[in-house]
Every structure is written in structure tokens, then in C-alpha cells.
Amino acid sequence: MRRIAAKLFNPKSDRAGSDPRRSRRWWKRVALDKSAHYTMRLLTMATVGLVPLIAGALLWRAWPILATHRLTSLLFSQAWHPLRGEFGFLPFIMGTLWVTTVAMLLAVPPSLLTAIYLAEYAPVRVQRLANPVIDLLAGIPSVVYGVWGVLVIVPLVGNQILPFVSRHLGALALFRTDNPTGFGVLAGGAVLAVMIFPLIIAVAQDLIRAVPQGLREASLSLGATRWQTVKHVVLRRARAGVVAAVVLGCSRALGETMAVLMVVGNVPQIPRSIFDAAYPLPALIANNYGEMMSVPLYDAALLGSALVLLLVVLGFNVASRLAVMRLVGTN
């Protein structure tokens, strides 16, 4: 108690305490202020500790499987037979990578072009209209994206794109499949792409806007066209920011669960073509929460995969945030 008191009031102000001008009310106010300050500081510190706490808790629950299985066999084995105690995560890791790659290929070009358009070309009226709409797009729950995927994207892939592509490009392994349903990597990637549009657009737009106006004016005054200015000056200056936006979108795509789960087919295999069904890691975790307590080591395996997911996303996030911070610092 005394130590707390000593911390709250340093000796200098203690002497002030004997000062008759310092009323009782003054002491009360200061005490209240100090205790609020320390409470706030405690909460803030706790937030910083939350990330390691989550990682630690996952590691704790995943430990049984890490202790009994070699890490290489967990990560690179295809054998997924929880009942026989075989946990090879390769099909799920590959599923995640396939879906995320397709999503990024579909999402990055239109998002960046939209961000450049809104930041550099669009009249103010268009910006005022477009940005709130993009924000609304960001707010739609992932389950609704999933429903939309099932209603629109999956039939589109199954009935239109798949027959067309396999007729014309069927010779390529990338487009060959025995899964005619439309549920698969392409559908998952397409839904994910729409989901990460708003994120990439918002971050890229902010960082493109942060490029000093003087640079643009210098370029334009040398006779460059607007697109040349964008290409050679603005994008060069905002390069780190564009990368950061893409990486952030990628990390969102890696962890997205429900929407992907609903359209990706969920077959534990390594996809060979964009029409094959896949089974990404988050979908695996979400789909098996019911049974996981009844099979030995199953819960450890699933929470272990949550840990892997967390660490990958964490790495992507920190890298991108640091890039943004450095960029904002230089401008």
C-alpha cells in the first residue's frame, strides 16, 4: 500500500501536501487522475500482450501433437487420417495457397487500377460516390458473400466458365478436372477476390494520395502525360505502399473462413487445376469443431493449424504495417 502511495505521489508533491493552499478537493482530483492514468496504461499494455497470449494459448493446446509428430511430417505429409493418428496438413496448406493465389490474381489488378483512378483521375463527385460504396462492400458479412458465391459464382463457374474453358483450353492440366460442380478453387478465389477489393483499394488509395503534390506537378510540367506521371513518379514513390496494400489483402485472404468454406468444395486433396475442389486450413478448422474433442489429438491438430495460420498472417501483417510506417515517415 505504501509503495503504491509512494508511486502515486512523488516526494516533491508530498511536501506540497503540507501546503495549506492545496485543498482536500485538489488531492482527490489528483488521486483520481493518477489512478485513471495507471488503469489506462494497464489496459493498453494488456492489449499489446494479447497477441503473444493468443499465440501462447494455441501453442499450449497444440503441444500434444507437436510433441508426438515430427514437424516435417505434419507440414509435408498428405496422409490425413485423424482416426489412425495421421495428421498430414499438406492438402490443406496447398488448398489455402491455391485459393489465395487465384484470389490475388483476380483481385490485385482491378483493385490497384481502381485505387489509382480514384486517387488520381476521378472527379470529386465520383470519389464521393465511390468511396462510401466501397466501404459498404467492406462491411458485408462473410456469410453473405458465401451465399452470393453459392447463388451466383458457383453456377457461373460450373455452367459457363468450366465448359467453355475445358472446350478450348482443356489440353492444359491447369484447366482439366473431373469436378463439374463449380464448387472449387476458382469459385473460392473469385469470392475472396471480391471480399478483399475494399481493403486493397482503401490502403492503396491512401498511400497514393500521400505522395507529395509537387512531384506530380514537376512531372507534368516536363510534358509527361498523366499516365506517365502515375507510372514513373507516383507509383514509383508509392511502391512500398502498393506492396503493403497487396500483402494486407493477401493476409486477409489467407484467414478468411466462412465464405470460402461455402464455395470451395471441401475435399481433402491437393488441387491440380483451378476447377478442382480444395480444402483450405480455416475451412478445416471450422468444419470439424464438432468432432474434434472425441478423437485423440484431433483438437491439438486443429488448434495447431490455427497457430500456423496466426503466425503466417502475423508475419504478413507486421511486414506490411512496417512498410507503411516507413513510407508515411518519408513523405
Binding site: T47, V51, I54, A57, L302, L309, V318, R321
Partner: peptide, 19 residues
């Protein structure tokens, strides 16, 4: 703290569920 909050923002919701 700001960095931690940004990172927490990026943590997938399935991980919050597992936690």
C-alpha cells in the same frame, strides 16, 4: 500499441474463435 492493434485487426476471426 498501435502496431499491436493493427496486427490484432488482421488476426482471422477463426483464430479468435479458437482462442
Amino acid at each position: 500499441t498501435r502496431l499491436a492493434l493493427d496486427v490484432l485487426w488482421g488476426v482471422p476471426s477463426i483464430v479468435y474463435g479458437a482462442f
